[in-house]
Structures are given as structure tokens and as C-alpha cells.
Amino acid sequence: MATGNAPTASEYVVHHLTHLNNTGHAQENVVDWTVINLDSMFWSLSLGVLTVFILWRAASRATSGVPGRFQGFVELLVEMVADQAKGIVHSAESRKFVAPLALTVFVWIFLMNFMDLIPVDLIPRIWEGIYASAGGDPAHAYQRVVPSADLNITLGMSCGVLLLCLYYNVKIKGFGGWVHELFSAPFGSHPVLWPFNFAMQIIEFVAKTVSHGMRLFGNMYAGELLFILIALLGGTASVFGFAGHLIAGTIWAIFHILIITLQAFIFMMLTLVYVGQAHESH
């Protein structure tokens, strides 16, 4: 963190919540398409590749004989996702892509969320060391290791789901059919109702996508922030702070195991639900 003096609590929190990006300092505008968060991208990509590697390992060794523990575990996941997909998306053709995507999303988001359980200072500290030894100022060695606590990542995935929904809307209902639905549902096909229908539909799409991404982001961001605050407790270097860090950290970490799994599952289920809705006519 700081070279000489220990940072204040607020400096510590802000430092922890600043992304490493291509500009080298915190992003100034709320929306800036020239900036990319290198830390989020690195961890997201690494964990994504790890996800498909794990799944691919199981798939490449899959036999119809007696499965080992690893194969059995992956098969359990596959079967769970396949069952859910079958119940929600009523098109075998669409399931060919949507079910594997849901599986990937589930494992990937779980791993991204799991980064929250790694001690909050561990990887940023290591990065500081690397950054400093490369001649950088450790005060600017930003590193956020939980990709799903980055709104860009979660909204990126929910926008991916939105694109998928639009694609299946057009594919299943035809472009004309979909446009007809945009203007005639949910209230009716009377011309007077068209603007209201269309407005409702747009609101629905936006709300679905934003809430889909925001839900995961909010949970993970709050979880990360809480870990940072608990770490601050330990940072007071008092008996109370140490005990508080230990107890609160343990309890929150155990509770967080539930949250990270649940959020990954919810994101996967909503992906299936939204794609399933794209197949249904109003």
C-alpha cells in the first residue's frame, strides 16, 4: 500500500476498490469505452479458461464405465444443469447451446465468486511486490481479484444473455412475429395500446438485464467490501481487532460459501429462464 506511512482506513478501502486498468489510475468518467480493467479481465479469463479446462478434462476422459470421483462430480453438475435446462427451455435445438452455456456460466461464476474467499490482501500484496520490483509506485499497484465484483463483468454476461434472448426471439418467432409481439403484448393489439406495449417490453428487457447483472455484482461487491472492512478490524493491531477479525472473518467466510454458490446458481437459472421466455409467445 503506502511506501512510508500506513494508509488511513479510507485510503485502504479506496485502494482496494480501485481497478488496475490501462490508464494506470482510477477511471474518471462513469462510462469510458477506452478504458479496460486489466485485473478483472485477467482473472475472468484465467478462471474461464480454468473452467473449460476442468470440464474438458472430465469430458475427454468420460467413459460409460464406472466413473471416478472427478468424473462423477462433473457428471453430477452436467446432469443438474441438463435437468434444469430441460425443464425451462422447451426446445431441444436451443438447449444444445444454452445448456452447455449455463454449465459454463455456473462453474465460471462460482470460481470468480470464490476469489472472494482468498484472503483479501494476499494477491494485492503480491502484486504490489511485483509492481514495485518492476519499478512502479506501490501506491498505484491496484488489483481487484474478484471479477464478479466488477459491474462490467456481470453486466457483460447479462448483456450476453440479452443478446441470446434477442437472437432466440427472432429465431423462434421470426422477425415479424417478434416485432408484432413487441407492440401487441402484454396489453393487446389495439393500435392505441402499441406505445404502452412497446414501452413495457423495453422496460422488461432492460430490467431483466440490469437486475441480472446487478444482483450478482451487488452480492459480490458487498461481500468483498465486508471482507475489506473485517481486514481493517485486524489492521488496528489490538486484541479486540484481532479477535474481531478472526471471528467475524470466519463467520462471514463460511456464510459467503453459501452466497457464492447461490449467486452462481441464480445467475445460471436466470440465464435459462430468460432464454426460455424468449421461446414463449405472450
Binding site: N21, Q27, N29, V30, V31, D32, W33, T34, V35, I36, N37, S40, M41, S44, L45, G48, T51, V52, L55, W56, K96, F97, P100, L101, L103, T104, V105, W108, D150, L151, N152, I153, L155, G156, M157, C159, G160, L163
Partner: peptide, 22 residues
């Protein structure tokens, strides 16, 4: 809480990983 090009990159990665799994 800023939006930037990470979002676009993530969409691309999302579909590539989905395609790979499929």
C-alpha cells in the same frame, strides 16, 4: 462502479467459453 470496455470483452469471452463447452 464505472462502465468501460471490460463489458464488451466479457461479452465476447462469455460466448467463446459457451461455444467451447457446447
Amino acid at each position: 462502479m464505472n462502465l468501460n470496455a471490460t463489458l464488451i470483452a466479457q461479452i465476447v469471452v462469455f460466448f467463446i467459453l459457451g461455444w467451447f463447452t457446447m
